[in-house]
Amino acid sequence: MRGAVVCAAIGLLLAAGCGGGDEPPAGPGMTIGIRFDQPGLGMRDPGGGFTGFDVDVAEYVAAQLGTDKRDITFVEARPADRETMLEQHKADLIVATYSITEARKQRVDFAGPYFVTGQSLLVRKTNSDIDGPESLNDSDWRLCSVTGSTPAQHVQANYAQSVTLEQRNSYRECVEALLKDEVDAVTSDDVILAGYATEQPDKLKVVGRPFSTERYGIGLRKGDTRRAQVTAALRAMIADGSWDRFVRDNVGRSGYQVQTRPEIVDDP
């Protein structure tokens, strides 16, 4: 009996249960995976802080689950690592422009979608030859995207015969390659590309209309019972106006036009 009491007390202090179960507690601490290199969405500042739409969403949801933003540990979630991070308990949630796909749902659960966007193209400002996805059939263009991302998979599935795809670890690396003329375009979701174009409007531009539909969800470990709470938090975020504010404060600066608020569903 005494051992159980001691264990319970330690559990309260360290926010770790005695049973060592698969699901960590919702508070007071939480580890959330975000992107560190996406302007307006998930960025790590030089001073070590974090800003962006996904960061605001993550902090809002965590608060609804009982975790203050001061008790959140943000970790970098690169596209190729996201499922593994959840499966290996390296993150409680992934809020990192994480598109909901049937293949990913075999390994993780999602709540959402909390944002809907589509794949597009980022080119140098002086480029007039690439003006949308139709241009990809005209020549052997060099495209850059990120390993493990849905845009890279889409290019491989639909344009493998007409373009050369280079996959790098981050979109920042792709943008640097574009500026150095090592590739002809960067392909990702238009809201991501808009952030990079805003950083260097005299050198970069987003072209064409989106040629896919990407539904961003919050990733959780398979079977995590907190999915219903996360879903409720996302609905509250839209209902109380926080979602609109997060979009305006982060994404609106790029001039990106959000068409509609997303509809949060129980099983996205």
Rank of each mutant, 00 (worst) to 15 (best):
V146E: 09
G33T: 03
M1F: 14
G195Y: 04
D131G: 12
A239Q: 07
E134K: 15
A103I: 13
T147F: 08
R248V: 05
V95G: 00
E263Y: 00
S120M: 06
A77C: 11
V247Y: 13
V155T: 05
E263S: 11
I100M: 05
V116R: 02
P133I: 01
P24G: 02
T84I: 08
P39C: 14
D22C: 01
T117P: 04
N250L: 03
R2V: 12
A77E: 04
A96K: 06
S145P: 05
Q257A: 07
D249E: 15
G19I: 08
S254G: 00
Y98D: 13
V206L: 02
V108I: 15
A91L: 10
C174Q: 12
S242L: 09
V61H: 01
Y114G: 10
M237E: 07
D109Y: 08
F110E: 02
E102M: 14
E199Y: 10
D138A: 12
L143M: 08
E23Y: 15
K125I: 13
I192P: 03
G52H: 06
R104Y: 07
L13R: 13
G217Y: 08
D202N: 14
M1Q: 14
L234V: 03
P268L: 01
A103D: 15
Q153N: 10
F74N: 08
P151T: 04
V191L: 12
D202G: 14
T101E: 00
L220G: 05
G47M: 02
N137I: 13
V186N: 06
Y196L: 15
I238V: 13
D190N: 01
R248G: 12
L93N: 01
D184S: 01
